[in-house]
Design a protein around this nucleic acid. Structure first.
Length: 363
DNA sequence: AAACCGGGGGC
DNA sequence: GCCCCAGGTTT
């Protein structure tokens, strides 16, 4: 037996003895049923998925039922699983399958990969499990199992590493029982070769696992290199509310086209050490009448944390805003229809309710 | 607080 | 074509 056959046969023997074989999607393994299960399992653990899967299959028993359904109905059956873009992609894919493929999954992996929400690994899972095609998958479980078995010394998120792991995954995928092998690898990763506390003593390939031999199996796969800790910045954000109009108006500031929140309408800001009332009246055409503190919170960007200290200032506008229109008054209703940074939206909502706030001074 | 995770999509 | 992010949950 070649080393490749040796690996697969041990994994398959383990699966025959210990693997899960009675999950709902392991009965009547049509491409459709396998597909739905794979998408659900990408985001959620087996035990949580089961009731969702049962309800989904009862309502959308085949690709035609799914394609015909209103999107709202599909999303309602997804409700609670999160990641709604995946449900929308799935719905779209069902319509492509019905319209372009007569309701059948394409025969080739490339064809299946064309469908929205299905990439190389998911396509391989569908075709191997439902049709026995000898295609390799590379999901998180397989990355962990193979990354440990070969003590892969680099992070799988690197292109080169991922390419190498695809090679490994292909090299071990057997031509016989490819579907069982796919399920076996996922099961092995989910139940024995877990991220923390793997049960190496029960593993069918422990004898030549390089990570186990190293004495520190959980050192593999190598984790994502830690980026330097995110710096923390802080800002005051001002909700300037002119209540002397028919409807209350809020002053927004157009952000520069490039950079953070490029081109979006945001709130005027001050540095933490700036004097709130003094600098507001100095820089903006308003007379401040009262100040209310809103709840502070942290917003995190990819590169830094921003601690936001928001205030609501009830003001009287003293003159029209400048012609460059960097600043503009909007009714709250109109403001919500603009492109607003998420934290700004949050602040405007809290300003409306003023829950958990405290009026600091009246002028 | 950070890792996770396959695919989408931005650059 | 390469890199990074979205989106909730787990560790």
């Amino acid at each position: 037996m070649t080393p490749k056959e040796h690996f697969a046969s041990r994994v398959l023997a383990w699966f025959d003895q210990h693997g899960r074989k009675h999950l709902p999607w392991q009965q009547n393994k049509t491409p459709y049923r396998v597909w739905i299960s794979e998408i659900m399992l990408q985001q959620t653990q087996v035990m949580t998925v089961i009731p969702y899967y049962e309800r989904f299959m009862a309502r959308f028993p085949d690709v035609f039922a799914l394609a015909d359904a209103p999107q709202d109905d599909v999303l309602a059956h997804w409700s609670g699983l999160g990641y709604y873009a995946r449900a929308r992609n799935m719905h779209k894919a069902a319509q492509v399958l019905v319209n372009d493929w007569n309701g059948e999954f394409p025969a080739s992996q490339e064809g299946v990969c064309e469908l929205p929400g299905i990439g190389r690994s998911t396509a391989a899972a569908i075709l191997s499990i439902s049709r026995g095609e000898p295609l390799a998958i590379l999901d998180g479980n397989v990355k962990r199992v193979l990354g440990r078995f070969h003590a892969v010394p680099t992070w799988p998120g690197e292109r080169k590493t991922e390419a190498a792991m695809w090679q490994l995954a292909e090299s071990y995928t057997p031509t016989d029982r490819a579907g069982d092998y796919t399920q076996a690898m996922m099961d092995l990763g989910a139940t024995l070769c877990t991220r923390s506390k793997p049960s190496c003593e029960r593993c069918p390939v422990q004898d030549d696992c390089d990570a186990l031999a190293s004495g520190a199996p959980t050192d593999f796969p190598k984790s994502k290199p830690k980026k330097p800790a995110k710096p923390v910045r802080a800002t005051q954000m001002l909700v300037l509310l002119d209540t002397h109009q028919e409807t209350p108006q809020v002053l927004l500031e157009k952000r520069p086209a490039t950079g953070i929140w490029g081109g979006l309408w945001s709130l005027p800001e001050l540095s933490l050490e700036d004097d709130l009332v003094q600098l507001t009246e100095q820089r903006l055409p308003v007379q401040v009448q009262s100040v209310t503190s809103l709840s502070s919170f942290r917003h995190t960007f990819s590169h830094y944390h921003l601690d936001i200290v928001p205030y609501q200032l009830d003001v009287k506008a003293t003159q029209a805003v400048s012609e460059e229109q960097k600043y503009q008054w909007f009714s709250l209703e109109h403001a919500y229809e603009l492109g607003l940074p998420a934290p700004v939206r949050t602040i405007l909502e809290s300003a409306q309710g003023q829950s958990g706030t405290q009026t600091l001074l009246e002028l």
